[in-house]
Amino acid sequence: MSIEKKTGPATMAEGMTTAVLCINGEDHALVFPTHHTLLEVLREECGLTGTKHGCELGECGACAVLVDGEPVLSCLQLAAEVQGKTIDTVEGLQRDNELHPLQAAFADLGAAQCGYCTPGILMVADALLKRVPAPTGEQVTEALSGNLCRCTGYNRIVQAVLWAAAMERGDDWRPDETLFEGTALPGADG
């Protein structure tokens, strides 16, 4: 789908932009201050508060979303500049009522503690898995190196991404059982 870049009608208040943004496959007709970031527009105009912020300066990765499939820090991205592009946020990750394998793996492996870094990390990981279906741990670490997490110590996040990748591929690879203290893995039951 392509949307022509529009400018506001003559009556539009100065400094405002009107735009149709395609978010998670759905069109949103929006009016917002031109200087507002995609982060602000997602959260404040669209009510899509799943995308978080830890700095609003491009330093933490909490605000990562996908623009045309590539991870973008939405706090550094003007919303007015992503018209005509596809935007994916954490709200679009789930498949109907089923969790995406990344989401299931994060939930079951304890890769989300407070969960505040999680949406950004999930989106970056999703982009990675689409590009590299069978990544190494090193590739996961590299892809996520722009995301901070203060809770988990990162290891479970890497393992969860590898696990999700395996589930997507139909591979029965499982994270090291010491992550579960030798107990049985829970099913990633959505």
């Binding site: 799943g50 709200e91 990750l93 969790l99 939930a107 079951d108 969960g115 999930l122 049985a184 829970p186």
Partner: peptide, 13 residues
């Protein structure tokens, strides 16, 4: 190792 009760909410935003 049950899934945390808020796990689903945390991974769905």
């Amino acid at each position: 190792p049950f899934r945390r009760v808020d796990g689903r909410a945390k991974v769905t935003g």
